Amino acid sequence: MTANRPNHTGLEGRIAELIVEPLEAQGYELVRVQIMGTESPTVQIMADRADNAAFTLDDCTAVSHLLSAVLDVEDPITSAWTLEVSSAGIDRPLTRTKDFVRYAGFEAKIELNFPGPGNRKRFSGVLVGADEESVQLKVEKGEVLNLKRADFKKAKLILTDALIAFSTPEAPLQ
């Protein structure tokens, strides 16, 4: 795992391994692989542009064509499946160290696989910092928790006016 790559396991991990290098070679970064459903699953891929520019519909199309070709050749899922490519959005999942660092100061929700501090699984607060091992989250009453990333079930930003302002490029002056 690196600061620029998410950590996946199981089939999602296998798919991530297959697609991360072709994605990066085309100027994109993998945010998340998620498989939904069992009979004919949907493989959801979230990506960003490596240059931090907005991820456009053209980017979705390019990534979809690229990954369709890669996954058709490698065939990691034996049954029929559907590929869905999207941007991570403003209230994005937090999967990489660089995401936690970039969005320090913004509100996030983190859910653990099993109870952590205070015997709780779910936490909301302001991101303070992160490294490869843990994330610091300032919760109500100002307490800063150090949460182990290996214990994360999921983490995502909370949509706020401040996050929208940060994520929306300024309009050019007329």
Rank of each mutant, 00 (worst) to 15 (best):
R32M: 13
R32Q: 15
R32Y: 01
R32D: 15
Q34L: 14
Q34I: 15
I35M: 05
I35P: 00
I35W: 02
M36G: 03
M36W: 03
G37K: 10
T38H: 06
T38N: 09
S40G: 08
S40V: 14
P41T: 14
P41R: 09
T42P: 03
T42E: 10
T42W: 07
V43M: 06
V43C: 04
Q44R: 15
M46P: 00
M46C: 06
A47G: 00
A47Q: 00
D48C: 09
A50W: 03
A50I: 04
D51R: 05
D51F: 04
N52R: 14
A53V: 09
A53P: 02
F55K: 06
T56W: 04
L57F: 02
L57T: 06
L57G: 07
D58L: 08
D59L: 14
D59K: 05
C60R: 09
C60A: 11
C60I: 06
A62V: 05
V63Y: 04
V63S: 11
V63P: 12
V63F: 07
S64Y: 02
L66R: 08
L66V: 08
L67V: 14
S68I: 10
S68H: 07
A69K: 15
A69E: 15
A69Y: 01
A69R: 15
V70T: 13
L71F: 08
L71R: 10
L71G: 08
D72Y: 03
V73Q: 10
V73T: 13
E74G: 05
E74S: 12
P76S: 09
I77A: 03
I77R: 05
I77F: 03
I77G: 01
T78N: 11
T78R: 14
S79W: 03
A80I: 12
W81S: 11
W81Q: 11
W81E: 02
L83D: 06
E84K: 13
E84F: 02
V85S: 01
S86R: 06
S87W: 05
A88M: 07
I90P: 03
I90M: 10
D91L: 12
D91I: 00
D91P: 05
D91E: 11
D91A: 13
